[in-house]
């Protein structure tokens, strides 16, 4: 009788094989959400985009250059968003140029502030806009957007880039402004908040007071939901600075994420796009 030979695999190869198998599983199951917003998906009831189009060149950066306007227009078209919030526009005329580039009607636009680095909003429908005065820094921009039979109340904010204390005040004042309104309106709070609280990253590298940023973010998220949560960075280097917050009473998030690869020239932000469906039917006052 012959004994069949026993094949003895050294344990180190078993461990290395296990490492490869587990690594493969981990890699394969990696969060696909971090691969950006799928623009090809069917547009929801409301697709919103926010984008800081400023450029990172120079000591303090520059607002959108006219040479980059065409790239912005192309990106808005590609995103198929119907409500677009832009930060760091150079002038009102620049926004008008974008509307023209998009083909004019039915696009409407509004801006806030004077001089350079203004906020702009574009909607493919009726827009009513007004500034929300803040005690520190640039004003916020409130719009009521009529999307078909639905009206949405949105506030766009470009919070201070250097001071967590100023950001805290600006965000706090905007939240005070929104208080009670989300009961009646589908509400959005969007923009470049200049704070990044994502897990697993050091927050103190880009903030002079990370704890205050924590306070600011928590103040918002006690009322509103963060659409871009866990969807990856929107700005260099690997920072999530742009937000679309929404109140879940009237809006249901379908999909959100940064529209990677949209930067042009020395821009340092990607647009953040979010698709919503209506949670209930309300019309504008």
């Amino acid at each position: 009788m012959t004994r069949s030979p026993t094949i003895r695999v050294p344990a180190e190869w078993l461990f290395l094989g296990l490492a490869v198998a587990l690594g493969w599983f981990s890699w394969r199951s990696d969060d696909s959400a971090l691969r950006g917003f799928p623009v090809q998906r069917e547009v929801g009831d409301l697709r919103v985009m926010t984008w800081n189009v400023g450029e990172a060149s120079g000591t303090h950066g520059n607002p959108l250059r006219d040479t980059s306007v065409k790239a912005v227009i192309d990106t808005i078209r590609r995103s198929r968003a119907e409500l677009v919030f832009l930060q760091e526009l150079q002038s009102r005329s620049q926004l008008r140029g974008i509307v023209e580039g998009l083909g004019g009607e039915p696009w409407r636009s509004a801006t806030s502030g004077e001089g350079q680095r203004i906020l702009g909003v574009l909607g493919r429908g009726s827009l009513t806009a007004r500034s929300v005065a803040l005690s520190r820094g640039r004003d916020a921009l409130q719009v009521v957007y009529q999307a078909g039979s639905q009206a949405v109340l949105a506030v766009s904010l470009h919070a201070d880039a250097f001071s967590a204390k100023k950001r805290n005040l600006q965000i706090g004042e905007v939240m005070s402004h929104l208080e009670g309104r989300h009961q009646r309106w589908p509400t959005l709070l969007v923009g470049d908040f200049n704070l990044d609280l994502d897990l697993d990253k050091r927050r103190d590298l880009f903030s002079n007071d990370e704890y205050r940023d924590v306070e600011s973010y928590n103040l918002v998220t006690q009322e509103l939901h963060d659409a871009g949560l866990g969807k990856g960075a929107t700005a260099e280097p690997d920072r999530r600075l742009d937000y679309v917050f929404y109140h879940p009473a009237h809006l249901r998030l379908q999909e959100a994420g940064p529209l990677s690869g949209s930067r042009f020239g020395s821009m340092d932000h990607d647009p953040l796009v979010a698709d919503f469906s209506w949670e209930s039917t309300l019309s504008a006052d």
Partner: peptide, 12 residues
Amino acid sequence: SRLLAFSAAFLG
């Protein structure tokens, strides 16, 4: 799984 993969690789 990723951590276990690293651990198994180091051990191997």
